[in-house]
Structure formats: structure tokens, C-alpha cells
């Protein structure tokens, strides 16, 4: 038995919208009973594209986060549905039965990822099926994966130990969108944007970029150290959101500085002036 999974590599996603378009192209105007009925002409985003811009000028990062149904192992939509209208197939795909789900609008709000859409005309909830109708015909991947021009979407059989996806599925760099929902999704991510703390260190006496200056970040029971680059820049990336950290900047002959930082948002500390230490 196959067991499908998808990994979305954010580092490779350029936000081209091909995945969304291919999904629309496949599902608009085409019924695939019993898996899904046709998507309406507009308004549904079974594969959503979310643009994420972080930081402030001049330290800004841009990411795109494609988001289909997560095909959870504990799907809240299934729990919210009546008479088994939402069910999980043995291969892991979560399906909303287009017949049984008729009128069950409450299924929409059960999903914390907000990936279920209401079809007004047909009176049914709808979402990504991972193109199960194609997989059942022998396709190796859904349309969105097929059209991804950068290979940002990786799809495959988790039960096949030789598949690329099964080899990395449980590795450290693979993560879950909103792990706090605890839904055991079959769609995972790599390179999801977290928080960064960055700054630019300047030697005040020389008015120049402070290269090779030691910067230490402490917080969440961990300590990281790095050195500023040629532009005096430093950056700690992949930090937890909404936590407190301390940035310490030290260089021989200069007065050390210590700055407390909250990662409610991404933080660019701007130019940090290091003063010569008085030797008296």
C-alpha cells in the first residue's frame, strides 16, 4: 500500500503561481467523482500562495509559502463532519465526499489551516485532493508538483524506502507548518521562515564597518556565536517567534555592548556603534 507525502521546500519557491494555476486548470470544469466535484471558476485556492516579507529596510527577506490541504493524520475536518463525509484513505489522502458533505458548511471552520473552501453553487465544502483521481490512474504526482519549475514540491510514497521523500521525511530539516496544531500532516516543509535578529556593527572612532567582531546570542537555553562579515553585518536566523534573546557584541579595545531583543517580529537592530574602551 502506498502512503503519500509532500515536502515543500520554501528555499526553492519563487512564488510563480504555477501550482495554483495547474490545480485550477485540473479541477475547474471537471468532476472527478467520487473524489471531488469541479472547482468553481474563481474564489477557491486549493493550493494557496502566501507571500511573506520580513524585516525592515535595509534588512528584508522575501519568501513564498504554497499551502495545500495538509492531509492530516488526525484531521479535524473528519471529526467535524457528519456521516463520514470526510475520510482518510489508506494512502493518507483526506477526501471530502462530495455527496455526503452536502450542506456541511461547519467543516470549513474546523480546519485551523483554513484550506477548505465553500462551493456556493454546489452547496459543498471542497479542498485539495492531491489529485487522487490522477494518482489512482497511475500518475506519480499531482498537477501542482508536475508544473513546479524549480522542484520546490517533492511528492512520493513514504512506504517506499528508496523514494527521495521517504529518505528525508523524518530528517531534522523537514518541519511542520504550525506544529502547535498537532495534526500530524502529510504535507511538510523545509526552510519555513522563522525569526531573525540582525544588525550592522560600526567602529565609532573610525566610522567604518566593524569586520570580524564577535557577536553572541543567548536565549532559550542556547548560545550561538558568530563574527560580523565585511560589511559589519551579523544575522541569527531560524529563531523562535515571540521569545527573548540577548545579543552581545565584543571586540578587543572596544566597550562590549549587550542588547535585549524580543522576536515578536523579525529584528534589524540597525547600526550599532562600538566605542573605544577607556583604558584608565
Amino acid at each position: 500500500m502506498r502512503c503519500y507525502g509532500m515536502i515543500i521546500d520554501i528555499d526553492k519557491c519563487t512564488g510563480c503561481y504555477n501550482c495554483f494555476l495547474a490545480c485550477r486548470d485540473e479541477h475547474y470544469g471537471n468532476d472527478f467523482p467520487p473524489i471531488a466535484l469541479a472547482q468553481p471558476f474563481q474564489g477557491h485556492f486549493w493550493m494557496q500562495m502566501n507571500e511573506r516579507e520580513r524585516g525592515i529596510y535595509p534588512k528584508v527577506k522575501v519568501s513564498f509559502i504554497p499551502k495545500p490541504c495538509m492531509h492530516c493524520d488526525d484531521p479535524p475536518c473528519a471529526q467535524a463532519s457528519l456521516s463520514g463525509a470526510v475520510y482518510k484513505r489508506p494512502d493518507g489522502i483526506v477526501i471530502i465526499d462530495p455527496e455526503k458533505s452536502r450542506g456541511q458548511k461547519e467543516i470549513l471552520s474546523s480546519c485551523p489551516h483554513r484550506v477548505i473552501f465553500w462551493n456556493e453553487e454546489k452547496n459543498i465544502p471542497q479542498k485539495c485532493t492531491l489529485c487522487a483521481h490522477l494518482l489512482d490512474q497511475g500518475w506519480g504526482e499531482p498537477r501542482c508538483v508536475e508544473v513546479c519549475p524549480t522542484g520546490a514540491l517533492l511528492f512520493g510514497d513514504l512506504n517506499d524506502p528508496k523514494s527521495q521523500i521517504s529518505r528525508i521525511w523524518n530528517s531534522k530539516q523537514v518541519e511542520v507548518l504550525h506544529p502547535e496544531f498537532e495534526l500530524k500532516p502529510r504535507v511538510k516543509y523545509m526552510g519555513l521562515p522563522k525569526r531573525f535578529i540582525a544588525g550592522t556593527v560600526i567602529f565609532k572612532d573610525k566610522d567604518e564597518c566593524a569586520k570580524e567582531v564577535k557577536v553572541t546570542l543567548t536565549g532559550r537555553g542556547k548560545k550561538q556565536t558568530l563574527r560580523t562579515n565585511n560589511f559589519g553585518d551579523f544575522e541569527f536566523e531560524g529563531l523562535e517567534e515571540g521569545k527573548e534573546f540577548t545579543v552581545k557584541i565584543e571586540h578587543s579595545g572596544y566597550t562590549p555592548q549587550s542588547i535585549k531583543v524580543q522576536t515578536k517580529q523579525d529584528v534589524y537592530l540597525g547600526e550599532i556603534l562600538l566605542k573605544r574602551s577607556s583604558k584608565r
Partner: peptide, 22 residues
């Protein structure tokens, strides 16, 4: 009825854009 990228074409090797997909 449908447009797909030609995987054998050296220019785009199967890749396309939203405008051609629609």
C-alpha cells in the same frame, strides 16, 4: 484544451508560467 511544457525542449525543459497555463 490544455497546454503543457515540453520536457524535451532545451529552452524550458518542461517549465511554464501562469499565463501559458491559463
Amino acid at each position: 484544451v490544455k497546454v503543457e511544457g515540453d520536457e524535451n525542449h532545451p529552452w524550458n525543459q518542461g517549465r511554464l508560467c501562469p499565463r501559458v497555463l491559463a
